[in-house]
Design a protein around this nucleic acid. Sequence first.
DNA 1: AGCCAGGCCTGCC
DNA 2: GGCAGGCATGGC
Length: 218
Amino acid sequence: MQYNQQFFLEIYMLLLDVYGYQKWWPAETPYEVVIGAVLTQNTNWNNVEKSISNLKKAVELTPDNIISLDNDVLKSLIKPSGFFNQKSERLKTISSFIVEYLKGDIKNLRLFPLETARKKLLAIKGIGNETADSILLYAADMPSFVVDKYTMRLFGRMGVDVAPKYEKYYNLFMNMLPNDVELFKEYHALIVEHSKNYCKKIPLCETCPIKNNCNKTK
DNA sequence: AGCCAGGCCTGCC
DNA sequence: GGCAGGCATGGC
């Protein structure tokens, strides 16, 4: 199919019109974004909220406090969001990175060029593409588009045939969209909001509000 | 009752 | 470089 800058902006406008501003990421501080980005790996956000609530009741959310938590305590606090053995370690690793290389403030990622900051995050064990880009975009306010399974499924259905690699989708969005942090934030949030309800199974497409743009329903 | 959720790593080919 | 398998809980 033919797609260009206009196509990607049209889909954005369409989603915005249907769902309205999402105002992502749902967190009180940039560091809480980091916590949520790790905890939501392959996990429903509802479960992540339980974990974050548990953490907040236990300590003030700072990298130092998370590092200081006993491992078993940390695991029990984040238990609702699953994979707690891996995720407890990942939270400590990223927190140590923030303390050691960013003077305790994830916002200091902004001191580096985007490419450099991205590579630093991806070098951390347990931080993959989506988690890194979520942190860059929503915690550090840097223009790194977040691609997730939903994004690939939705745009794959619409005939964007760069699947299935994250890198290819990432480069596509980075090249096709104006370099605008607020646009990136809202676009990803809208894709998620849309995908929670639609684009799962073909029968759902019958009532999909943007089905006219989807190859599968044509 | 299964399937899925805002992934990532490892090991094998 | 691609792909299955493992990781774990809670909601529908």
